[in-house]
Amino acid sequence: FSITQFVRNLGLEHLMDIFEREQITLRVLVEMGHKELKEIGINAYGHREKLIKGVERLI
Results as ranks from 00 to 15, higher is better:
L15N: 00
I40Q: 01
L37K: 00
Q5E: 15
R48L: 10
I24F: 04
R57C: 13
E56W: 07
I42K: 04
L12W: 01
E36F: 06
K35Q: 10
M16L: 12
L29E: 01
K35T: 09
I24M: 07
F19R: 00
E22G: 07
H34P: 03
Q23P: 04
Q23V: 07
R8K: 15
G41V: 07
G11L: 03
G41F: 05
E31Y: 13
R21K: 11
R48S: 03
L15H: 02
L29W: 04
M16V: 15
R57V: 09
L58Q: 05
V30M: 15
V30E: 08
V28D: 14
T4K: 14
V28C: 14
G54V: 04
T25E: 06
N9A: 15
I40M: 09
E36D: 08
L12M: 08
N43I: 15
V28P: 02
E13T: 10
H34L: 06
I18H: 05
G11A: 05
L29H: 09
K50C: 11
M16Q: 09
E20C: 09
L15E: 00
L37A: 01
V28E: 12
V30D: 01
H34K: 02
E31T: 14
R27E: 15
R57P: 03
E56Q: 14
N43D: 13
K50V: 09
I59R: 12
I18N: 03
H34C: 05
H47T: 15
Q5G: 08
E22T: 08
E22Y: 14
F1Q: 14
R21W: 06
I42N: 03
E39H: 09
E22P: 03
H14T: 10
K53Q: 11
K35L: 06
G54W: 05
I3H: 01
R57E: 13
F1Y: 11
R21I: 05
M16R: 07
E49M: 12
T25M: 04
L29A: 01
A44Y: 13
K35H: 09
I3Y: 03
G11Y: 05
F19Q: 00
E39Q: 12
E22Q: 11
L12G: 02
R21A: 09
V30T: 12
V28A: 13
R21G: 06
E49A: 11
T25K: 05
L51I: 15
R57L: 13
H34R: 03
D17K: 12
Q23N: 14
H14F: 15
H47W: 11
K38E: 13
V55M: 10
E56N: 10
I59G: 08
H34Y: 04
H14C: 15
H47F: 07
E39G: 10
K38N: 07
K35V: 07
T25L: 02
E49F: 07
I18F: 06
K53V: 07
G33E: 01
H14W: 08
D17T: 11
E13G: 12
L15M: 05
K50H: 06
L51C: 05
K53C: 10
H14Q: 11
L26Q: 02
R21F: 05
E39R: 11
I59L: 11
H34G: 05
N9F: 11
I24W: 03
T25C: 05
H14N: 10
H47Y: 09
N9Y: 14
K53E: 08
D17R: 09
F1K: 10
I40N: 02
L29I: 06
R21E: 06
L26P: 04
L10V: 06
E20R: 12
L10D: 00
R21D: 06
K50G: 05
S2C: 14
K53P: 01
I59V: 11
L15P: 00
